[in-house]
Each structure stands twice: as C-alpha cells, then as structure tokens.
C-alpha cells in the first residue's frame, strides 16, 4: 500500500521525460531561492544546501546514475547563479549524488525518504560534499583545512540535515494519507 504512493501515482511522474523536466524546473527554483532568500535564515554565514537535498532526493528516487548526473547539473547551475568557480559545486554534488545512490532501492524511494534514514543519507552525502568543496575552497588560502572544515563544513552539513526534516515529514505525511 505504502509502495503504491511511489512515482506511479500520477501521469506526470510516470512519464520519464516530463519527470526530468520537472526536476530541472525544481532545481532552477531551488537555486534562485538559495541565492535570493537563504541569507535571511543564515546563521553565521551558514545556510542549508537545498540543491544537495534535491540531489539526494533524485538519487534515492532514480538511482545512482541519475543521481550523479543530477548532482553535476545542480552543482553547475549553482556555480553559475552564485558566481562561484565553475565546477567546484558540480564536482562536490556529483560525489554526493554518487554516495546517495548507494542507498537506492527500487520501489522503496518514498519509504526511504519518509524515514529517518533520509536524514542519515543527507548527513553522509553532506559530509562528502563539504569535504570535497571546502578542500577546493581553501586551496588558494594558507589556512588549516581541518579547522576550516570543522567550523563551516560540519555546520553546513548539520544545517542541511535539519532542513531535510521538512521533505522527510512531507513524504511521511503523504504516505500515511
């Protein structure tokens, strides 16, 4: 019963091409929200990474291959809208999508997302993402990577994990209906 809630329910979600167009639109909206609005909820310059949550979502629904590609495209999109070095986020989010893809189980996507497991997956993917991203970030600076990562990388991962509670609760609630 719970499994029937999965992507087969609507025509939109059942058609792969329409589904991928929807993913692209959602990614674009999330990127704009991130750049324009997330400053309002930043804590000491740390904000949740919405595109990371989305990459993990896609990886859990579509599998590792699509998750990686989605991560790359989301990262590239974010690099463009945030005026960052092209490729830095693309690399980090590709690896995050690859990591999250290991937790993909066919037909169980919404079960995983509606469970605490989703938070754990976001946290693991977030650590991988931020390790790679901040390693590239501090490269031109002469500062201790470990301290920098503990300060910003861990904080960003935690904030993203907290933000992941909302999609988890949303899916959980819809599944119960």
């Amino acid at each position: 019963m719970a499994l029937n809630f999965d992507v087969q329910r609507s025509h939109l979600m059942a058609t792969p091409s329409l589904r991928f167009i929807l993913y692209a639109v959602v990614a674009l909206i999330l990127a704009v929200i991130h750049v324009v609005f997330l400053g309002y909820i930043s804590v000491s310059s740390v904000t949740p990474d919405l595109l990371l949550l989305f990459t993990v979502w896609v990886a859990l629904v579509e599998g590792q291959f699509t998750g990686m590609v989605a991560g790359f495209l989301c990262g590239l999109l974010f690099d463009v809208v945030s005026a960052d070095v092209l490729g830095a986020n693309a690399l980090a989010k590709t690896l995050a999508g690859f990591t999250a893809g290991y937790f993909w189980r066919e037909g169980f996507a919404m079960v995983t997302i509606g469970h605490y497991r989703y938070l754990m997956i976001v946290a693991i993917a977030g650590v991988i993402h931020n390790l790679v991203y901040y390693l590239l970030y501090v490269q031109p600076m002469q500062i201790d990577f470990l301290m920098f990562f503990l300060k910003y990388g861990v904080a960003t991962t935690l904030y993203s994990t907290v933000a992941a509670v909302f999609p988890m609760l949303y899916v959980n609630r819809r599944r119960d209906q």
């Binding site: 590792q64 291959f65 990686m68 590609v69 790359f72 990262g75 590239l76 690099d79 463009v80 005026a83 960052d84 070095v85 092209l86 490729g87 830095a88 693309a90 690399l91 590709t94 690896l95 690859f98 893809g101 590239l136």
Partner: peptide
C-alpha cells in the same frame, strides 16, 4: 561499470571547468 565510468567522466569535466577559471 556505467556508474563508475559516468562518475569518472563527470569528475574530469568538473576539473576541466575549474581549470577554465571563474565566471
């Protein structure tokens, strides 16, 4: 090995983009 091949390709593409420079 399509997942690993794709991963390697995307990683190489990311580094190539980074070497191009900033926006």
């Amino acid at each position: 090995f399509k997942n690993y091949i794709t991963l390697s390709t995307l990683v190489v593409m990311s580094f190539a983009l980074m070497s191009v420079g900033n926006l």
